[in-house]
Every structure is written in structure tokens, then in C-alpha cells.
């Protein structure tokens, strides 16, 4: 059984106009996504700004209310829970963000921030036990007990991200939704945090849903990957296979756009024209067809479904990819 099972999840926002806030349409930020994450596995969610990847991550935790669909975590439907049950369940899923400065309270020391998480979930009620636990958590993310006294503004970006991870770890999650956790960091600091995430997975058996626009980092960290475009998954499968033999024209273009240190790769750069359309006015048919170099007539009218390609684990939503 997968740890997390997302079925046909939709997040639609009403589009309001004018003084009276009349609803004139809907923005389909996430439009029917299926996704699974197994225990102790890392699944990458990639795509460009506005493709809905962050909204999907937030909707899984119900930080953004989903419009319809199902989110099963440890075999329980998260969308059917409320109040105390939801809080207890949600403890097992934690989120870390791109900018830890925005998610840490500037008036709390690092230790207090972590302690707050312990307190909310009533994990270590006694003061002495709590400070021992905080020190252990700080050490597990590569900091020292002394960092507990520091305020966020006294810490570097990498240290703040480590505090964010320690706070998430405090409540013993089984799944961490990581939304661009290393994008704001310098390259050498990024490597330190990426290595830390790998170490924590090994020692604590945590699963990650790793949301990122950086395909090289995703290839490095993730066993499986899902590529999103305009609220839908257009291709998903084992990361190595998607990165070496992508089937969807969008995935191919996305991979080709990544700068490479290998000089032989540079000449093969494929430039994708245009930009992702606004989800307010999505194209008919395949959402990618206006930018697609191989689009045909039916791509403009029929929306392709995500279906299996070469093998059962690799699925593609493109009319032009032949069925097995």
C-alpha cells in the first residue's frame, strides 16, 4: 500500500470580477491529479511557475482546500477528517518551504520554534525533556545545541533551512512535502541540505514529495518523478527513465533547456517557444499544444489522458505517443 495516494485531486478557484465580486469563471490550478508516494521514497514534482505544483503540495496537507478528489494517507481519507483527527493525522505529514525566513517566527529563538511544534502536538510536556529533545534534533540536522538560543535573523539561509527541517522532524513525520527547499540557497549550501535530506531519509525512513523546478536536483534525489503542466501531470515514471528517455514533448523541451556542463550537450539545445498560458484561459485539447513542435489537429480538440507507455510505471499524456 502506498503511504500517500492522491486520486483525481482538483483545486479550482473562483475568478471574481467587479465590486460585487461576481464569479466570472474558474482557475483550474490543479485539475485531476493522480499521485502516489511510497514509504521512505522520494517523488519529484517538477514544472514551471504556475503549473500548480505548489498548490498540489498544499492541497495534500489541506493548507489549500481541494475542490474534489481524494487524498489517502496511511489509508485514511484526509479530506473526510476534521478537527482533532485531522490535526493528529496531519502531524505525520510536514511541510518545508523555500524561504525558511518566512516560515520561522522572528520573535522566537530556533529552540522555541522547535519547542512550539512539540508543544502543539503534546510530544514532550516536560521542560527538561523538551530541551534535551531540541538539542538532539538540532544535532540531527547538523547544528549544535547552542543554535537553540539564536533568532532567525542571526542565522544564515542554510542554517535557517536546517531549523525548518528540525522543526518538521520534531513531530516524527512519515512524509515531508518539500516546496523548493534548496532553491534560495547558494550551491555549496544547497549540496549540504540535499545531503542532509538523503541522510534523514536513510536514518528515519521519511518519504519526500519534492517540489522543484530544478531538474538536476530532482534527478539526484528522486526515485520517481511527475511532470506538471497547467494543472495536470503530463508524464510520470522512474526518474532515470524520464531523464534519459522522455516521451512527452514538454518533458523533452524542459530537459533540453537545462544548462549542462557537458560541451557536447550544448549544441542540442532545443528552444521551446512562448510561455505557459494563463490557467484562466487554458487552451482547448492538450494544454501544451500551442507550444508543441509536433502538435496535430486532434491535439487542439481532444485532451489526452495519462496512460501507460513503454511499461506500467511510465505514463504519458500525449496523443502522439503510441500505446504499448
Amino acid at each position: 500500500m502506498p503511504l500517500l495516494e492522491v486520486e483525481q485531486l482538483k483545486v479550482h478557484y473562483p475568478l471574481r470580477r467587479g465590486l460585487l465580486g461576481r464569479v466570472v469563471g474558474t482557475v483550474k490550478a490543479v485539475d485531476g491529479v493522480d499521485l502516489t508516494v511510497n514509504a521512505a521514497e522520494t517523488v519529484g514534482l517538477v514544472g514551471e511557475s504556475g503549473c500548480g505544483k505548489s498548490t498540489l503540495g498544499r492541497a495534500i496537507l489541506r493548507l489549500t482546500p481541494p475542490t474534489s478528489g481524494r487524498v489517502r494517507f496511511e489509508q485514511e481519507d484526509l479530506l473526510a477528517l476534521s478537527g482533532r483527527d485531522l490535526r493528529a493525522r496531519r502531524r505525520r505529514i510536514q511541510m518545508i518551504f523555500q524561504d525558511p525566513f518566512g516560515s520561522l517566527d522572528p520573535r522566537l529563538t530556533a529552540g522555541d520554534s522547535i519547542g512550539e511544534a512539540l508543544e502543539i502536538h503534546r510530544l514532550t510536556p516536560h521542560r527538561t525533556a523538551r530541551s534535551t529533545r531540541i538539542a538532539a534534533l538540532l544535532e540531527s540536522v547538523g547544528l549544535t545545541a547552542a543554535h537553540a538560543q539564536r533568532y532567525p535573523q542571526e542565522l544564515s539561509g542554510g542554517q535557517r533551512q536546517r531549523i525548518g527541517i528540525a522543526r518538521a522532524l520534531a513531530v516524527e513525520p512519515r512524509l515531508m512535502v518539500c516546496d523548493e527547499p534548496v532553491s534560495a540557497l547558494d550551491v555549496s549550501v544547497q549540496a549540504q541540505v540535499v545531503n542532509l535530506l538523503q541522510d534523514l531519509q536513510r536514518s528515519h525512513g521519511i518519504a519526500y514529495l519534492f517540489i522543484s523546478h530544478d531538474l538536476a536536483v530532482v534527478r539526484h534525489l528522486c526515485q520517481r518523478v511527475a511532470v506538471m503542466y497547467l494543472g495536470r501531470i503530463v508524464e510520470t515514471g522512474p526518474t532515470a527513465e524520464i531523464c534519459t528517455a522522455p516521451r512527452h514533448p514538454y518533458t523533452q523541451a524542459l530537459l533540453a533547456a537545462v544548462p549542462s556542463l557537458d560541451p557536447s550537450r550544448r549544441l542540442r539545445r532545443l528552444l521551446l517557444p512562448g510561455e505557459m498560458p494563463s490557467p484562466i484561459h487554458p487552451p482547448t485539447g492538450c494544454p501544451f499544444h500551442p507550444r508543441c513542435p509536433v502538435a496535430e489537429a486532434r491535439c487542439r480538440t481532444e485532451t489526452p489522458l495519462l496512460r501507460t507507455s513503454t511499461d506500467a510505471s511510465h505514463r504519458v499524456a500525449c496523443h502522439l505517443v503510441p500505446s504499448p
Binding site: 550551491v187 545531503n195 531523464c243 537545462v258
Partner: peptide
């Protein structure tokens, strides 16, 4: 310390 898309490594420096 930077991952490269085309030459995967097991661990970053």
C-alpha cells in the same frame, strides 16, 4: 557540489 542532469552521482560533495 552541483548535481548535473546528465551525469548522476550518488552523493554531492
Amino acid at each position: 557540489s552541483v548535481p548535473d542532469l546528465h551525469t548522476p552521482v550518488t552523493r554531492l560533495l
